[in-house]
């Protein structure tokens, strides 16, 4: 079996932007994701989980180029205004065409 390199993009965001973020991700070509919720605090000092509900953590596997496009979108519309962080880590998958 041949492993194909992709990247795992992880986004942690305050709950209030969840619906908008998932729409924007779909528009950017992200076809699937896993969403979990959790608590936390960040540099924005907006601890919104008391009133908005728990933060969301979205993970998705995609090509490095697609991840760059999503990060550029986040940098323009989300990072300046909302409590959102995102990072990319390398991943290996078997069915490469499913994720790229």
């Amino acid at each position: 079996m041949r492993n194909v390199p992709v990247v795992c993009l992880t986004i942690v965001a305050e709950a209030v932007v969840e619906a908008r973020l998932l729409r924007d991700l779909a528009a950017a070509g992200v076809r699937g994701w896993t969403l979990t919720s959790g608590r936390g605090r960040g540099t924005s000092q907006v601890d919104a989980s008391d009133w908005e509900g728990a933060n969301v953590r979205i993970e998705t596997l995609l090509s490095s180029a697609a991840a760059d496009r999503v990060l550029a979108m986040l940098a323009e519309f989300y990072f300046p205004q909302f409590a959102v962080v995102a990072w990319v880590s390398p991943a290996q998958v078997v069915r490469g065409d499913k994720f790229t």
């Binding site: 932007v17 919104a48 009133w51 908005e52 909302f82």
Partner: peptide, 19 residues
């Protein structure tokens, strides 16, 4: 309001300070 308004304001005026 502290249920409907905070969510709406956070979306429409994200630059406002929730504190």
């Amino acid at each position: 309001s502290y249920i409907a308004a905070p969510a709406a304001v956070r979306l429409a005026l994200p630059q406002a300070n929730p504190a």
